[in-house]
Amino acid sequence: MIAMEHYIILSTLLFAIGMYGVIIRKNLLMLFFATEIMLNAVNVALAAISNYYGDLTGQMFAFFIVAIAASEVAIGLGLLIIWFKRHGSIDLDTLKSMKG
């Protein structure tokens, strides 16, 4: 039997990878990929806690996270396609239209 801590540590590592990707990437599509990794990492932690406490609430939250991720992708990619059509690039640097 694997201890719950193993799953929590795995989830931490995956979340760190996703966070690292969000910070270093300049391409917006790659930023979306990194966001998906972070959402998946949290899902693993929720499922692990749900299993080890015999509680279904964690799995319920994981389902809603999946639903939110699906709608985020639909809206985000729609906006990204509009941006690409207008500016010809999905670099994060081209988004600097509001210079402070």
Binding site: I8, S11, T12, L13, F15, A16, M19, Y20, I23, I24, R25, K26, N27, M30, V42, A45, D91
Partner: peptide, 23 residues
Amino acid sequence: DIKESKSSKMIFLLSAFSSILLV
């Protein structure tokens, strides 16, 4: 190929710190 911004030590530290905070 995709261009990337420069990574630094600070970024590793920040991502590790936020992950540990989440845990």
